[in-house]
Write a protein that binds this DNA or RNA. Sequence first.
DNA 1: TTAAACTTTCAGTAATTTTTGAACTTTTGA
DNA 2: TCAAAAGTTCAAAAATTACTGAAAGTTTAA
Lengths: 168, 168
Amino acid sequence: MELSEGRLKFIEAWGKLGSEWGINRTMAQIHALLLISPEALTTEDIMEELTISRGNTNMNLRDLIGWGLVEKQHKSGERKEYFYADKDTWNIARQVAKERKKRELDPIIKLLNELSEVKGDDKDRNYKTFRSSVKDINKLAKNVNKTLETMLKAEESWFWGSIFKIFK
Amino acid sequence: MELSEGRLKFIEAWGKLGSEWGINRTMAQIHALLLISPEALTTEDIMEELTISRGNTNMNLRDLIGWGLVEKQHKSGERKEYFYADKDTWNIARQVAKERKKRELDPIIKLLNELSEVKGDDKDRNYKTFRSSVKDINKLAKNVNKTLETMLKAEESWFWGSIFKIFK
DNA sequence: TTAAACTTTCAGTAATTTTTGAACTTTTGA
DNA sequence: TCAAAAGTTCAAAAATTACTGAAAGTTTAA
């Protein structure tokens, strides 16, 4: 396979993966393009490569910056903004985990704690099933939460090393 | 909070969470409803509780069965089909992990292996960055893969026990 | 202070995804 | 064998989400 074909496939696959995980396709594609670009790119570069509009490019770049996956760069003597993606996969994974934890896991844990307080009749089967499901999900969510917190602080090699030491 | 309010909030939250993770809202809501229902429900029950159409209910139930999260039950002497959700959270997590691994991780690993074979000029910076990104993502994907495989085989208490033994 | 170079915003449009509902199929019991 | 009761399908409609392009905003340098 040629590099140019490989690059296209990579961008396409990253976009598809993103959309399967609730991340907009274009945002994932811009990220993919930056991941395989040695140099920072301008808005124009991205628009051309992906044939998308200026507005779309701009908004998705802001989002990527909001996710902590892309940063703005300025070249001295130039007015234009350049965009660069961190290439360290472990940082990317951590950053995504961090943001999704904040946006989704934390609120769900908060709700589950509230739902644990729901009062009812212990003889009511609906109530018993509700309580039991909420309790179990709560436990799982808290375990995931603890594991993510460890991961957020950890070095990649230590993290996987620890995992595999046990799992063999 | 009252049980009825809690049930509504739970269904709503589960639906939202699903949609944030690329799972259709209604499918997640049906799953939520079944999770907090002690008895198996009929299509009619679900249609009424969630005020959705028969077609929609039917299709999403098929999908849930396809994900291995819901099973059909038959009551003797009755024509109607009843639907029941496994309430074991660990089984649910494993089932979701298993399906998503099969549908998404496995294909991505296959592609990454192909992309590892892309030929090019070692002096080309584009080529070098491409190779390096592909290699790193490949490594991460394989680590995730191994961890998932362990998880799929494991008992819940053993799994979290092992994780926390290391992470403290 | 002006104008060129660039960035941001957002109303309108387009694309995609989800839902409906009615026609169609299957199963069952009389 | 038939009709009632249930289950399934899918074209069309609705809802949601993403994209465009042009106007408005900002920054810079002369």
